[in-house]
């Protein structure tokens, strides 16, 4: 068995696999970023954590 050939072949496969993984993770990060922007611009979720006085909480 030619070990050098085998090693090259395996390294090639690993390289392509790592590239695919990097690309998919990178694209997923971009998606998460835009989904976060979309969710935050909705405004509903951040109301409880903005540390400002909300008139709706004040007892009459």
């Amino acid at each position: 068995m030619d070990l050098n050939k085998l090693e090259n072949d395996i390294n090639q496969k690993r390289k392509s696999k790592n590239l695919w993984l990097a690309l998919s993770l990178g694209s997923f990060i971009v998606v998460v970023f835009f989904v976060t922007i979309a969710k935050l611009s909705d405004g509903n979720s951040i109301e409880g954590f903005d540390h400002t006085l909300r008139p709706s909480l004040i007892k009459e």
């Binding site: 070990l3 050098n4 085998l6 090693e7 072949d9 395996i10 496969k13 690993r14 392509s16 696999k17 590239l19 695919w20 993984l21």
Partner: peptide, 15 residues
Amino acid sequence: RSTNNIYLSLNEPSA
């Protein structure tokens, strides 16, 4: 074990 002392799996799947 390869020439560079790295352990190689013969069953290396591609992407």
